[in-house]
Nucleic acid binder design. Structure first.
Length: 403
DNA sequence: GTCAATTCACATGAAAGAGACCACGGTCTAGTG
DNA sequence: CTAGACCGTGGTCTCTTTCATGTGAATTGACGA
């Protein structure tokens, strides 16, 4: 009988007033017309990049800042402006933005260079060629004509963590190999200690200039939220204190503006879906819960089988005994589960790494401790709200075909 | 009682293997004129 | 003669295994007071 009501539901949905006027303003890839509280940084970036307009090579730049502090946004904004000026005078200036974290796009040396070649319109197979070959193609393509290239490498810390700093070394040396063109690099990292771990030669040439993006404070977040909210929503749909609360939540999380905007958007969606004419403060709480819940569910269900089996072991021990768990226990149970579902058990070495990965995902909380005479191990706890644990267990059971 | 040595139960690192995917060049085969 | 099918080689990439080494404090046992 649900079907009968469906048409009516859609009819009603259409006639119902939406809270939004422009939903995408709150999405993370939206570029606002003015960027608040980042004037100083944008100025600096502009100063550093400006020589590109005279076809000189700008200094390499390194940008630090936690997630959601407007690094990418500011860089993109500034470079777009430069590009506009340059293209008006038809100058040979090119700017490429590459996110190194994108899986299967630019997360290895080969793929990064291949991606660059593709930006230049060269067809590069996803694999199969030697890396040197790719470099050669890249050089040849770039060096055909005189031009200045600015290469923005977002989340560069991820790339280096995965593949080592050899790439950076190669990249910084590119200029020596080029005759006509010049490349300058902008690295964006959300890890503040990233540069310390680099090879000193790479470090000095890569971070000729450095800019740090401090986290937003609660007031600044409020500004940003107000600015976006004005465009995103109809007038007067935000209840008293909504913005303040959003900002406060996000400020607590190292001033992450992306988080704040997401919170606001989800809260609005919840309010709208439940037929409220206004976003109320309690919707923010609900939104926070929903975001966290969704994040966890998503993370759990996209894990590969082995990881799921390991997580399942952890969760089932935890449910039975809400206490700290040690690696050995998990491994024993895990082996049993593998047997049950016909999976080849991994070695303990690997399981140890997987536990580390699950920790990184924030699904569990693992801390290395020494129990003295009784060895050294990880102290593991499930770090998921108890309302979600049962759900996780179900997902895992389904994923593993456990009965 | 004190202190260094021992010991446990893994953690952590490095290197190498397995297997999937892929490009390229050479050889073979069948169809065509 | 030529297009396409079919190898073999060599490359990347991810997930693992293997082997080796590290580690921090409870415990032990020798030692001296």
């Amino acid at each position: 009988m649900v079907q009968k009501g469906l048409t009516a539901f859609f009819e009603k949905f259409l006639t119902k007033e939406s809270l939004f006027t422009d939903r995408k303003v709150l999405q993370s890839n939206y570029t606002p017309e003015t960027i608040l509280h980042r004037d100083a940084q944008i100025q600096q970036i502009a100063k550093i990049m400006a020589p590109a307009l005279r076809l000189d090579k700008p200094s390499n730049l390194f940008v630090y800042g936690k997630t959601g502090t407007g690094k990418t946004l500011s860089i993109k904004y500034t470079t777009n402006q430069i590009l506009e000026v340059a293209s008006q005078r038809s100058m040979p200036l090119k700017i490429f933005y590459i996110n190194c974290k994108l899986k299967r796009v630019a997360d290895t040396e080969y793929r990064l260079i291949a991606q660059l070649c593709r930006e230049f319109g060269k067809e590069i197979p996803p694999t199969g060629l030697p890396t040197d070959e790719i470099y050669r193609i890249f050089f040849d393509t770039i060096d055909k004509e005189k031009q200045v290239i600015i290469l923005i490498l977002d989340e560069i810390d991820q790339l280096v963590k995965k593949t080592g700093d050899e790439i950076l070394y190669n990249l910084t040396r590119i200029n020596a190999e080029l005759h006509k063109s010049q490349i300058s690099l902008i690295g964006i990292s959300s890890d503040l200690r990233f540069a310390e771990a680099l090879d000193s030669r790479v470090k000095s040439s890569l971070s000729e200039e450095e800019i740090i993006f401090p986290p937003y404070n609660a007031m600044q977040l409020q500004h940003i939220l107000k600015q976006r909210g004005k465009i995103a929503f109809k007038e007067g749909v935000m209840d008293e204190g909504v913005i303040e609360k959003c900002a406060a939540y996000a400020a607590r999380e190292h001033g992450d503006a992306r988080r704040a905007l997401e919170l606001l958007r989800v809260a609005a969606e919840i309010a709208e879906r439940n037929g409220f004419a206004k976003i109320e403060v309690r919707h923010i709480d609900e939104a926070e819960e929903k975001i966290e819940h969704d994040r966890i569910i998503e993370a759990v269900s996209t894990q590969p089988k082995q990881h799921q089996a390991i997580l399942y072991s952890i969760v089932s021990i935890y449910i039975k005994r809400k206490d700290i768990i040690f690696t050995g226990e998990i491994y024993e149970l895990y082996k049993g589960i593998c047997h049950q579902v016909g999976l080849r058990p991994l070695t303990q070495r690997r399981v140890s790494d997987v536990i580390g990965e699950l920790d990184m995902l924030g699904l569990i909380n693992a801390k290395v401790i020494s129990k003295g005479r009784y060895g050294r191990t990880r102290e593991i706890q499930v770090s998921v709200p108890s309302s979600t644990i049962a759900k996780i267990k179900n997902i895992l059971e389904e994923g593993l075909d456990l009965t």
